Simulated assay, not measured.
Amino acid sequence: MTPDLSSARPATAASPAGADRIRQWFARYKILALLIAVALIWLFFGVLTHGAFATPRNLSNLLRQMAISGMLACGMVFVIIAGEIDLSVGSLLGLLGGVAAILDANRNWPIEATIPVVLALGVVAGLVNGWLSTYRRVPSFIVGLGGMLAYRGILLGITGGSTIAPVSDRFVFLGQGYLPRLAGNALALLLFAVLAFVTVRARSNRRRYELPVPPLWQDATKIVGAGAVIFAFVATLDDYGGIPVPVLLVLLMLGIFTWVATQTVFGRRIYSVGSNLEATRLSGVDTNRVKLAIFALMGLMCAFAGIVNTARLAAGSPSAGNMGELDAIAACFIGGTSMRGGSGTVYGALIGALVMASLDNGMSMLDVDAYWQMIAKGAILVVAVWIDVVSRTNRR
Rank of each mutant, 00 (worst) to 15 (best):
F231Y: 15
A370H: 04
V368H: 00
L182S: 01
A228S: 14
L95V: 12
Q218G: 01
L211K: 13
T163F: 13
F26R: 05
A150R: 02
A330F: 09
V198P: 03
A113R: 10
V273P: 00
P212V: 11
A37Q: 10
V118Y: 10
R23E: 08
D286E: 00
L149V: 15
R201A: 02
L5C: 06
D388H: 07
V355C: 00
T393W: 11
G83L: 14
F295Q: 00
D104F: 04
S272T: 05
K30I: 06
A370S: 03
I375C: 01
I85D: 08
L248G: 13
F44K: 04
P110H: 11
A196M: 15
I270F: 02
I256Y: 06
T345R: 06
E84I: 09
G255S: 01
G341A: 03
A165I: 11
S133K: 07
A188D: 08
L62F: 02
V234F: 15
D104H: 05
N185T: 10
A357E: 04
V247G: 01
E210W: 07
S168K: 13
A293D: 00
W217K: 05
V245Y: 13
F233M: 11
P139W: 12
M356Q: 05
D104Y: 10
A228I: 15
L277A: 05
